[in-house]
Write a protein that binds this DNA or RNA. Structure first.
Lengths: 220, 220, 220, 220
DNA sequence: TATGAATGAGAGTTCATTCAT
DNA sequence: TATGAATGAACTCTCATTCAT
C-alpha cells in the first residue's frame, strides 16, 4: 500500500485544512502536480495531460474531481487568497492593535515577518495567483472584494489609528498604504521572485525596510 | 489609395523608429492587433487566428512576417525593454548628474515623471512584458542583462554619488535601490494597472512619493 | 460486440505477430488505411486527414497512437525490413545450406519462390519501402545495416560455398550477387509492380529466370 | 551584366537543345534549382519557395514560366524520357543492326556503355523520374507509351534478329528482354544510386555484366 | 472510483498560387 | 518581365473533455 510518508508541502497542508471534504490520495497528487505545472508554465500553457502524468493519474481522473481545467485552477488558488490576506481581517482588530501593537513599528514588524514567512511557504501558489489575476475574472473579482473592500478599509483604520496617536505624518491614507505595501511587496518580489538564489540576511533586510518606511512616514 | 490617417499609438510609432526596415501597412496592423490580444489574454491564450482577424489580415500573412508566434511576441516586446531602461544608460551620466541633478530630489523627480509618462504611453506592451518574463527565457535573459548588469550598476553609482555628497543615509546601496524602485513601481502598478479607472492627481502623488522616499532615505 | 470477421490482409497479420503490445481495433484500421494511402500517394503527398477518414477514425486518434506522421510510417515499414530479409539471416545457415540446398540451383529456386510469395503478400508495404528509402534517413540506415552488413555477408558466404564446390564461375562475389539480385528483383518489379495486370505463368517465369542465372554463372 | 560562365550541367544543356524557345537566365536557374530540390526531397516534399530561393528568384517568377508546380516537374522530366529511350527508336534500326552490331555482344556492349554514360550525366533527373512515375499519371502514360509501345517492340525485333541468327537461346522474347534489362538496370542502380561513393572499375563491371548475360542467353 | 481510448474543435504553420506594382 | 506581399485552404499536431469499460 503506497503511504504518503514524505511531509506534505506546507501549502498543501493548508489546503487540506481548508477543505471540508476529505481529499483522496489521488486528489492530493493532482493538486500537487497542478501547482507545480501551473507555476512553471502558466495556466494557459499547462496541459492537463502533463499534470495527469506528473500526478501519476489517468487523464480522466482529473475531470472526475474537477469539472474543467479552470475549476482545478480556482480550487487551488481561491482558498489561498483568503489566507493571504486573512490576518488583517480579524474581528476585533482594534483590541489587537491596542494590546499587541503599541507602536506602528511593532505593527509593521509583525506584519512583515509574518506575511513574508507565509509568502515563502506558499510561493508557488502566489506566483500562480499573480500571473492569473489579470486573466481570470473570477480571481479578479475575489481580489477586488478582499483587497478593495476589506483590506483597504482595515488598513485605513490602522493608519488613522497611528496618525491619531501622532506617530505618523498626515499623509493621505491611501498614499500611506501604497508606500507600506510597495515596500513590503518589493521586499517579497526581489528576494523571493526575482533573485531567489541570491543569499540574503532576511532579518536585516526586514529591519532596513521597516526603518525606511518609518523614516518615510514618521512625523518628524 | 488607403491612407493611415488615424494617429498611431505612441508605442507603435516608437517601434517604427526602432526598426530599420520598412513595415508594410499590414505588418503594422498585425503588430497593433497582436499587442491588443496579447495584453488582453496573455501570450499563451492568444490565438494567431484572433490576431489575424483583428488585424484584418489572412492568418498566413502573420507567418510571412514572423516565423512563429513567439517571434511575433519577441519582435514586439524586445525593443521595448531597451527603451524602458534606456534613460539610465547614458554614456556620460556623471556629467548629467552634476549638471542636471544637483540634488537627489531633482534626480528622483525627473526619473519618476519621465518614466511614468513613458509607462503610460507603452502600457500594453509593459503589461505583456511583465506577464511573459517569467515564461520566456529569451526575455528573462534580456531582462537580466539589462537590469542586472547595466541598470543596477548605474544606480549604484548614483546612490553612491549622493551618499558621498551627504544627502543620503548610509543604507546598503542595494537596499536603497530596492526602496526607490519599489516606491516607483508601486506608484505605477497601483495607478496604471490595478486601478486605472480611479481618478488621481498624478502630480501630487508623484510629489508625495518623492517626499516619502526622501524622508525614508535622507540623512538626518 | 464489434467482430472483425473480414480476413486481415496478410501483412497486417504479420505486423500483429511482430508487435508485443496489443493493438486496438482502431489502431488496426489506422494502419490499414495508412498503408493504403501511403502506397497510393506516397508518404509526403498522403494526408493524415485522409488516412483518418479512410480508417473511420478521428484525426486526433492517429496522433494518440503515433506521435507524428513519420512515426506512423516507420512503425509500418520498419518491421517489414527485417522480415523481408529475414530468411537469409539464419543462425546456422551453413547447416541449412548443406542439408537443404545441395546445389546452387536448389538454393536459387527456394529463394525465388519463397521471396516472391512474400513480396506478393506484402506488396503495398514494399512499395512504400522502395519509395521512401531515398528520403527517410531512418530507413536508409536500417537498410544499410540489414543489407550492407548482414545480407551481403551471408550471400558472400553462399556464393563462396558453391564456387568452392565448383558449381559457380569464379566471378567476383559482389558481381555475382548483383546478377542474382538483379534477376530476382527484375522478376518482381516487372510482374508485380510494372505490369501487375498482365497474366503470367509465375512458375514458368521463375524457372526461366533460374535457368538464365544458372547459365550465366555456371562454370562450364 | 551577369554572365553564366560556369559550364552548365550536361542535362541542362540537353534540355536547352530540346527546347525550341529560348530560356532566359532566370528560367535556367529555376530549372537547375528545381532538379536539385526535387531529386533531394522528392516532388511532393519540395516547396516552390525553396526552389525559388535556391534559384535566386522571386516566388512569383516560377509561376510566370510554369503555370503550376506540376508543370515545372513535367517540363523537366518529360523531355528526358524521350532522350533516355531515344537510341532504340531509330527509324532504320534494322540497317543499323546489320551494319553496326554484327553480334549480340556488340549490341549489348554498345547499349550498356552508351546508356550508362547517359544515366550518369542525367542522374538527378532519372532519380526524379523513377520516384515520380508511380504517382504522376502523366508520366506513367508517357512511360507506357514509350516503353510499352516502342521500346518493347524494337527490342523484340532485336532479340528475334539474333535468335534467328542462332546466337541466342529460344527463350521467350519478353523474358529475354527482362533479363537484359534487369542486368543493365541492376548495374545502374547499384553503382549510381545505391553505392555511388564506392569506387568501381566501370569498364570491368560492364564487361562482366555482358559476359553474364551472354552466358545466360547464349545458345550452346 | 478510476481508467485511457477516442474525440473534434482549434491550434500554429506551410505552401502553391495570385496580383498589384 | 520580375517581384514579393498577400492569400486561404490544407496541413500536422494538441488538448480539454467525454464515456464505455
Amino acid at each position: 500500500m503506497p503511504q504518503h510518508q514524505e511531509p506534505l508541502e506546507p501549502w498543501l497542508e493548508a489546503l487540506l485544512h481548508t477543505e471540508d471534504r476529505k481529499l483522496t490520495e489521488k486528489q492530493l497528487k493532482i493538486i500537487e502536480a497542478a501547482v507545480e505545472v501551473f507555476s512553471q508554465k502558466g495556466y494557459a500553457a499547462a496541459s492537463t495531460s502533463e499534470i495527469a502524468q506528473m500526478a501519476g493519474v489517468a487523464e480522466g481522473t482529473i475531470f472526475r474531481h474537477y469539472k474543467t481545467k479552470k475549476d482545478l485552477l480556482l480550487s487551488i488558488v481561491t482558498p489561498m487568497m483568503g489566507k493571504l490576506l486573512a490576518p488583517f481581517i480579524l474581528n476585533n482588530f482594534n483590541d489587537v492593535l491596542e494590546k499587541d501593537y503599541p507602536t506602528f513599528e511593532a505593527f509593521l514588524r509583525a506584519v512583515l515577518i509574518n506575511r513574508l514567512a507565509f509568502a515563502r511557504k506558499h510561493l508557488k501558489i502566489i506566483k500562480i495567483l499573480l500571473q492569473e489575476i489579470p486573466f481570470q475574472p473570477a480571481l479578479k473579482e475575489q481580489f477586488i472584494e478582499h483587497i478593495g473592500m476589506k483590506i483597504l478599509g482595515r488598513f485605513q483604520q490602522i493608519v488613522k489609528h497611528f496618525q491619531d496617536k501622532g506617530e505618523l505624518l498626515e499623509v493621505p491614507t491611501f498614499a500611506a498604504i501604497r508606500f507600506v505595501a510597495s515596500s513590503a511587496v518589493g521586499l517579497f518580489v526581489v528576494h523571493l521572485l526575482l533573485a531567489p538564489d541570491l543569499p540574503w540576511d532576511e532579518e536585516k533586510e526586514i529591519e532596513q525596510t521597516i526603518q525606511f518606511v518609518l523614516h518615510g512616514l514618521a512625523s518628524k
